[in-house]
Simulated assay, not measured.
Amino acid sequence: MILLLSLSFRNTPQKIREYFAFGNEDKERLLKSLCSEELIDEAAVLITCNRTEIYVSAGNDRSTSSIINIILEKCEEIIGINIENLRDYLLFYTGKSAVSHLYKVSAGLDSMLIGEDQILGQVKDAIEFARECDTAHLYLNTLFRDAVTEAKKIKTETLISKSGVSTATLALKAAKDVLNSFSGKNILVIGASGKIGDIVLKNALSYDFVQIYVTRRRHNIDMSPNVMERVSIIEYNDRYDYIKNADVIVSATSGPHFTLTKEHIQENILPGSKKVFIDLAVPCDIDERVSKLDNIYYYNMDDMKKFADENNEKKKMSIEKASLMVEEGVEKFLKWALFQENLKVFSDATENLEKEMARIGEKKTLEHLFYKIRDNGSLEALQSIIDILSI
C-alpha cells in the first residue's frame, strides 16, 4: 500500500507550509524515524516552495489511521510544536489515489502553474535523497521511476510545458504589469545561486533591464561579455545599498530568516519611488509588512496562484490528454504492484499446473483451469481472460 500525506498550496496556507519546509538534516531524520516504525517499510519526502509531501509504503494489512498518526507525530517532533487543527490543512491519499497523485505532481498537473518544469527535477531529487538515506526500496523506487518516466513522455507529447512554465516567469510578468515596461529599469535578485533564483536570473536576462544586480557565487554565472555588461555580482551584506537603484527586488533563498526587513527597506528607498518586491521563498524571505509602504507592491508564493489562472486556461486540451496518459501510467504501475504482491500465488499455481499436467496431460489440465476460472471468477474477470486469449 502506498500512502501519502500532502500539504500544498491547494489546502495549506503558506504560514503552515513554512513549518514543514525541512532542510536536509531534518528530512533525513524524518525518513529514518518513519522507517524505524514497524508499520512503515519505505518513506520519501518531496519538498518544494509550494508543497511538502510524505510518501510511505506499507503492507496492505496495516492500519491507515495508525500510519497517518505516526507521520504526524514524527513531523511535530521535528517542528518542535503541536500545530492546532493541523489535520484541517492536510490531504491524505492511499492506494490508487496516492499513486495517481504522484504521477500528476511529476507531470506538473497538480502545480500552481500547470506544466511547470521545475517539479520534475524536485521529484527526482526526492527519491534520490530517500535512496541515500536507505529508506526507499522496491516499491517507492519503482513508483517514482515510473512517475518520472511518464511525466517526461507527457511533456514530450503534449503542449503542457510549452508556455510560461515557471514561477519565475510569472513573478517577472507580475512586476512588468506594475511597471508597464522594464525598459530603463533595474532588478536585484537575492539568492541567484539557488535553483529558483537561477531561473529568475535567466528570465531577467531575456528582458531589457538596464542593470541586473545579483547575490551569487561568481563561478556559477555565465560571464560572457554580453552578460558582464548587464550583471553586477554584489555581496549579500550590501543588498540594502542596491535597493535604492532597483525597481524590482526578487528574493529566493533557502534561509530561515528574512533577507529584507521593513525597517531596513524603509531606510534605503526614496520616498514615492515605485518598487516591486517578490518573495519566492518558503519560509518567506521578505517581511510582508513592506506592503504597507507607499508605492510598494509585494507578492509572495500565495499570490502567484492568481497569476497562474490565465496560463492554465490556455492549456485545457493538453491537460485532458496528459490526464489520460497519467491514468494509463497509474494502471500500469498498479498492475506491476499487484503482480509483485502475488508472486507466491503465481509460483504455487505454476507448480500445481506442472503436477496436474504430469498426472492427466496438458489438454485436460488447461480445460480444468478454464472451467475453474468460469465457475469461480466474476463475469468481468472471465471476459478479461477471453479478451487476452483472443489477442
Rank of each mutant, 00 (worst) to 15 (best):
Ile83Glu: 07
Ala43Ile: 09
Leu369Gln: 07
Ile386Trp: 01
Asp134Tyr: 11
Glu327Arg: 09
Leu338Met: 12
Arg10Ile: 12
Asn141Ser: 13
Ile388Pro: 05
Met301His: 00
Ser251Gly: 03
Lys314Asp: 10
Ala107His: 02
Ile78Phe: 01
Glu18Trp: 05
Val330Ser: 05
Ala168Tyr: 01
Ala136Phe: 02
Glu351Asp: 13
Phe258Pro: 03
Ser111Tyr: 00
Tyr371Cys: 15
Asp41Ser: 15
Glu267His: 00
Cys35Ser: 06
Leu201Tyr: 11
Glu351Cys: 10
Lys292Trp: 00
Lys316Ile: 05
Phe339Gly: 14
Val165Glu: 14
Tyr213Ser: 11
Leu72Lys: 12
Asn24Pro: 13
Ser378Ile: 09
Leu120Val: 03
Asp41Asn: 13
Val290Ala: 08
Asn237Lys: 14
Ile190Leu: 11
Gly197Arg: 01
Lys355Asp: 14
Asp177Cys: 12
Glu235Tyr: 00
Leu34Pro: 13
Glu132His: 09
Val276Thr: 07
Ala308Gln: 08
Lys162Gln: 15
Lys162Thr: 11
Leu39Lys: 12
Val214Asp: 08
Ile154Gly: 05
Lys176Met: 15
Leu140Thr: 05
Gln383Asn: 06
Phe20Cys: 02
Asp110Lys: 08
Leu120Met: 04
Asn11Leu: 05
Glu341Lys: 05
Val123Lys: 00
Asp222Ser: 07
Thr167Ser: 06
Ile319Lys: 06
Ala246Leu: 09
Lys152Gly: 08
Ile286Met: 06
Arg216Cys: 15
Arg239Leu: 14
Asp279Glu: 06
Glu288Gly: 07
Ile212Asp: 11
Leu34Glu: 10
Ser6Trp: 00
Glu150Gln: 11
Asp348Asn: 14
Tyr93Leu: 07
Lys275Trp: 04
His137Trp: 10
Leu270Met: 08
Ile71Val: 09
His264Pro: 04
Asp279Pro: 02
Arg216Asn: 12
Glu42Ile: 03
Ile2His: 02
Thr52Glu: 11
